[in-house]
Simulated assay, not measured.
Amino acid sequence: MTYRADTARYDTMQYRHSGRSGLQLPVVSLGLWQNFGGTRDYPSAMEILGHAFDAGVTHFDLANNYGPPAGSAEELFGQVMARDFRPYRDELIISTKAGYNMWPGPYGEFGSRKYLLSSLDQSLGRMGLDYVDIFYSHRFDPNTPLEETMGALAHAVRVGKALYVGISSYPEAQTREAYRILKEMGVQTTIHQPSYSVLNRWIENDHTIDACGELGIGMIAFSPLAQGVLSGKYNNGQKEGTRGENPNGSLRASHIEPRVLEAVDKLGEIAKARGQSLVQLALSWVLRRPEMTSALIGVRNLDQLKDNLGVLNNLALSAEEIAAIDAATAGGQMELHPSPKGWLR
């Protein structure tokens, strides 16, 4: 059966400009980081992606290494594009990234021109696209001149393989320098993608969010639910079928320490008083900042997607509620910060 998008798909979603650019993103975007790899079949993928687009989610976020295995999320999305989404290409914002390890040898990761542009070509091939809407440098590379990394992004724009470019997980100083270099090349730094949640506030602590606001760079938060911790499922001891099941995965034991889970319990009471799920409260909090263009969600099933989209019913937070949230989470911060080798605590 051929997919046909809901004619009412733009009736309820809210959109925000990415910084001072003309690009608008839905306040809720869908990422294919860990849930659309080799074990995901086409019908279940299309159920989620189709429902998202029917709800006005126009932005789908990928990277070369998303899976597992690496590359498989782009391959699956390429099938969706070919079979169902092709008529809607001009309504979609599709992003990908390069920075993490993809192939053996010295040219398979980080920020060289060789790696970034080779990776972009591979990503386009996997997705069956002529261009992506956003191409990111996935992480800062301290061993490659930033002029080279940003020059590769600028080249992708000039040759039409990317409409916009961005950076991900860059601290404040590197964010400012990347902006300066791209501006000298006549290219806008349209967006920054950092991790950000009520339990992970590194972009506030190192002033990256303030720099983006000052420079007119939009922001899209990944892990706004702190790897699922802010769904409350770990408070019930649930690990089976979650990221907590894999000791070598992206969720670490320190993320579900008793002090963190205690903060989650307190947030649950605030959410209940607002008539929201805990997930919806967490997304409302991320989106409260004017610098934040969108919250990037990851879901395993349709019910989770619907819960996330329910945030649209109550985005506003009062000053009193924000103060209560700050008090509830004061002792439960994950204290993360980015480094070229990954996330440190």
Rank of each mutant, 00 (worst) to 15 (best):
G237Y: 10
G38F: 10
N64S: 14
T149Y: 00
D133R: 02
R40I: 11
M13V: 11
G268H: 03
M81G: 12
I217A: 06
Q174H: 06
L25R: 02
V299H: 11
S250Y: 08
S119M: 04
M13K: 05
G99A: 03
Q304L: 08
L267K: 04
R139D: 05
Q79D: 15
R243H: 15
T2I: 14
E184T: 02
N246D: 15
L116N: 01
P171D: 03
N143V: 01
L116Y: 00
I220F: 13
L312V: 14
A98L: 02
E335A: 14
G213Y: 02
L215W: 04
N143M: 06
L296M: 13
T242H: 13
G37M: 01
I167E: 08
D141A: 01
Q227K: 13
G237D: 12
P104V: 05
D41V: 05
G151C: 00
I48H: 12
L25N: 07
N236T: 11
L344D: 13
G298C: 07
S137Y: 04
L302G: 05
G237A: 10
Y136E: 00
S318R: 11
L261D: 14
R176T: 01
K114V: 08
M334W: 11
I217F: 05
L225Q: 03
G151D: 00
P338D: 04
W33N: 14
V279A: 13
A323T: 12
P171K: 00
L153K: 00
G232C: 03
A45W: 14
S29A: 15
L312T: 12
G232Q: 04
G342M: 04
L296E: 09
L23P: 04
T144F: 00
L62N: 13
P104H: 12
I203W: 05
D54Q: 02
N235H: 04
L30T: 06
T149I: 01
S231N: 05
V229H: 00
V264D: 09
G22K: 11
R40S: 03
I256R: 04
N248C: 06
R158F: 08
I220G: 13
G244T: 06
S197I: 09
S119A: 12
R289P: 10
P224E: 11
D303L: 13
V311Y: 05
L120R: 00
L302S: 09
Q304K: 05
D61K: 02
I167F: 04
R243L: 15
G218E: 12
L225Y: 02
E214C: 06
V264Y: 07
G31C: 04
S223E: 13
R176Q: 01
L120M: 01
E147M: 00
L315D: 14
W343M: 15
D307Q: 05
C212E: 04
L146C: 02
G151L: 01
K306C: 03
S18Y: 14
Q304W: 02
Q280K: 09
D90F: 14
Q227C: 12
Q79Y: 10
Y66N: 03
S231P: 09
A156M: 02
E147G: 00
Q122C: 15
G160T: 09
L163Q: 15
P68S: 15
A221K: 07
S339P: 10
V286G: 06
L230E: 05
M127V: 08
A98F: 00
F140W: 10
V28P: 07
D130P: 07
I325P: 06
